[in-house]
Design a binder for these strands. Structure first.
Lengths: 233, 233
DNA sequence: GTGACATATAAGTCTGACTTTTTATGGCTG
DNA sequence: CAGCCATAAAAAGTCAGACTTATATGTCAC
């Protein structure tokens, strides 16, 4: 899915990043570049590059004569896709999943409203196709195929809105949807009403009915939120 | 406001980052690390660290035997505060300001709704204080003092919501509000109705009226959006 | 106690040599 | 001429070592 092993510094990040975001090093902890370089058996230059990346994510701060100190959680760049992936892979996955689902419930309805205004004919067609694909795979344990169409659907909503900030959340939503299907529960087929809602959103967008698209999408995201409430109370 | 000149690589980023986000190097352009190092008169190691940071922001991709290629805009980490600052300082500032204001209009109402549920007594007090501070400075060209309270108000809404993703947008909103006051227009005192809305939001939060807090905040952000429509049609 | 000064420490910087990967090239063969 | 493989070249990637700079902290005089 992502970009693994793009050089030595990348491999260092693959273990150091998750460790930090998992809270293994409590905020305020000091790391020494030289020590880390020894631990990971890489040169100082490589370790320095890794630290620079962590610094740009605001996970750590590097100060002379002190070392590399871990920053408190509330300063992290929590929108960095890399950080999101690390946290989703770690211990506070449930907490992170909830935060992101709440975020979805704020963004997607507004995005759908804009999409109803701005979507091209082609995007409308794709959207409808995705919704139909969801219907077609909503019964008979074809969850993988269902998921693919579900992700595509929401990605189109976000990109067709014409707002770049919304569009960039496509990957995040994909991650959340995939996480729900694979990790957590959802053994059974998806709820029929939820599937129908997607079809109706596609209709509303095609009709250019902004308010309805927004309201229907809100129902979808609220449903996702309630589903999460049931699973993780 | 930010963290200027944290080392040589930081100074390189201060000019290379804005240049890239401004579109000076069109997507697909190739940069050579060694050439850049010469241009900026720094060592290769320093330039490599700078490139690593740009890479982690998805502004560029570094590939062997090819060079450092500039990525298309739609792949950038547009939520990175640094990237946002660079773009706000550049040519497409109006476009960026609009994107962020639309984002606000999606996030803040939902955040306010959650804040009405979750805010502590202390946070309620602070919120009221901010609203009153806005009222007190809403007349007589005391825009700077008004802005300070305005920023604090919205920051509390976002953090008191209890959602970390919302909380992290505090800086972004601050940047947008500051930008509106300083750069663009707003010579006159702020609109009295807008000021009143803030007071009423504080009241709703204090009363724990989630739906009302959400709706009133929506009015605020929609107003901000319309104001932008008038200025930049 | 307060202030000036010395010292130690860890990040920061530079340089040069070497390795690795990937692309282009050019000649060979069918 | 087309297709293929060996070769070379180019640029990033890695490493090691020496040196610089900022700064936290401890020491000493007052």
């Amino acid at each position: 899915m992502s970009t693994p092993g793009r050089g030595l510094h990348g491999r260092v990040l693959d273990t150091l990043g998750p460790a930090i975001t998992a809270g293994e090093y409590p905020p305020g902890s000091v790391l020494r570049t030289d020590e880390l370089a020894q631990q990971f058996d890489v040169s100082r230059s490589v370790m320095r590059e890794a630290v620079r990346v962590l610094e740009s994510m605001h996970l750590v701060a590097s100060r002379r004569r002190v070392g590399v100190t871990v920053r408190p959680k509330h300063e992290w760049n929590v929108y960095d896709p890399q950080v999101i992936r690390w946290r989703l892979a770690g211990a506070d996955r449930p907490h992170q999943l909830r935060s992101l689902t709440v975020l979805r419930s704020a963004i997607e309805p507004v995005a759908a409203g804009l999409t109803a205004r701005n979507a091209t004919a082609e995007q409308c067609a794709e959207l409808t196709e995705c919704a139909l694909g969801m219907v077609a795979n909503s019964r008979g344990h074809k969850l993988d195929q269902y998921l693919i169409h579900d992700i595509a659907f929401h990605r189109i909503i976000l990109t067709a809105s014409g707002n770049e900030m919304f569009a960039r959340l496509g990957d995040v939503v994909a991650e959340v949807l995939a996480g729900r299907t694979h990790h957590d529960v959802m053994f059974a087929d998806p709820d029929p009403p939820a599937v129908t809602l997607h079809v109706r959103v596609a209709e509303a967008v095609r009709a250019g009915d902004s308010a309805r698209a927004e309201e229907l999408t809100r129902e979808i995201t609220v449903g996702a939120l309630q589903e999460l409430d049931i699973l993780v109370p």
